[in-house]
Amino acid sequence: MWLQRFAFILLCSGFAVQGGYIEVSVGDPVRFPETRTCATENAELSHHLAGDRDQLVARYQDGVWKPGPGYQDRMGPGTSVTLNTTYITDKGLYHLTCEKTPTQLDVVPFYEAEAAERKPATVHCYYGTAGRHVESVRWERDGKHVFEIKFSSNETTLGAGFEGRVSLPPESNKTGNFSLIFQWVLPEDRGDYRCYIQADGEKERGNPAAARLRVKEESPGQTTTAPQPASTTQKGPGDTGMGPWPIVIAVTVIVAALGTGFGWWLKSCCSNVPTSASSDEEHELEQPLNGAPPPLPHLPPGVNGRPPVNTPV
């Protein structure tokens, strides 16, 4: 099982082989392809170190390549030499007795970047452009073309699947910022990215030399199918995002207060005006409880319009 997993990692890793040049990200496996065709007994692959010293990496014996001292934990017997992992100290020239031309191994450090699926992301790359004539910038992922711009003609080419999604910052040739900007990322964008600058006729790597992009995929419950454009709504200095409700509440309180005050004022004005109702109430209080008419008042004779009655003495 571990052999299948290792083979998968080896095939998907970001190392690039071009003739006698191998480029690999630190920590990734690397295979020396020339060793497969070198099946001579006691053939050797050695790493040329400083001080004109050679360190044995592997020796071909009994039909297989066997690891040399110090490589047993990173290599097993096989038909070719493959290191399961690489160290930064593995960088340098490698000599194979079957080949006259040495192989240059370049172990590239990288930084890890993480982005959420269908969200913007930036993979950083910088280069000192002061006093240099930068001709072009090229981005690759796992050795495949992603983006390239030629500044003389301003011609831009994009790799398959990256159309309309990647670009460089404005005035990148002036600022030296050649970072790759994603409008949104997809799960298939994960991998090792490298930035190459062609300046004064020489091809160089930017800084950082490489980046490993990891993409956090959406959960199954999410239904987003396309990136949403950023909102263009502008907020004023006093806008808290609460909407018109504070104004509605304030107006309601003011109207209620004015209505209450007006009611009290109207009541106080009406209480000072005499009405006939009060006289009627006083008159009703004078009525006897049994419903009989009230007694007539004692009037002096002749007041009621009749002549006085002479009573016999």
Rank of each mutant, 00 (worst) to 15 (best):
D62Y: 10
W65D: 08
F8W: 12
P33W: 00
E23G: 00
T122H: 09
E217F: 00
K150Y: 10
P220A: 10
E202M: 02
S219E: 07
P227K: 10
G159V: 02
V107M: 05
P29D: 10
G19Y: 07
G27E: 08
A130S: 04
N310V: 05
L213W: 11
F6H: 15
C98R: 01
E99W: 05
T86H: 08
A256C: 12
W264H: 06
T40E: 11
L56N: 06
Y127H: 03
C38S: 01
K144M: 10
G128R: 02
L180M: 09
T89M: 05
W245M: 08
V253Y: 03
W245P: 01
S46Q: 07
P220L: 10
T252H: 04
T97V: 09
R141M: 15
S13K: 00
E155Y: 11
N177S: 01
G159H: 00
N310M: 04
H48E: 07
L158K: 13
P300E: 10
Q222E: 12
N154I: 08
L96G: 07
M75E: 12
E155S: 15
A130F: 04
T37C: 02
A210F: 02
N177P: 00
P69N: 09
K203E: 02
T224Y: 10
T89D: 04
Q287H: 13
P187L: 09
Q4D: 13
G92C: 05
L93W: 13
S179C: 06
L11E: 14
R5S: 09
D90N: 13
P102H: 04
I88Q: 03
A16G: 03
I22G: 00
R141F: 09
D90V: 06
Q55K: 13
V134G: 02
A113F: 09
E34R: 02
Q104M: 07
P69I: 07
G128E: 04
D239F: 02
A257D: 05
E34S: 03
V108Q: 07
A257C: 08
V81I: 10
S231W: 05
I9N: 08
N84F: 12
V248N: 05
P246H: 04
L289S: 04
G78L: 01
S271R: 13
Q198K: 00
G302C: 08
N207C: 03
E41M: 04
R138K: 11
P237C: 14
S278A: 12
P227T: 13
Q222Y: 09
P297A: 14
L266Q: 10
A39T: 11
G159N: 01
E135N: 12
Q183D: 14
L10M: 00
G263W: 08
G236M: 15
R306I: 05
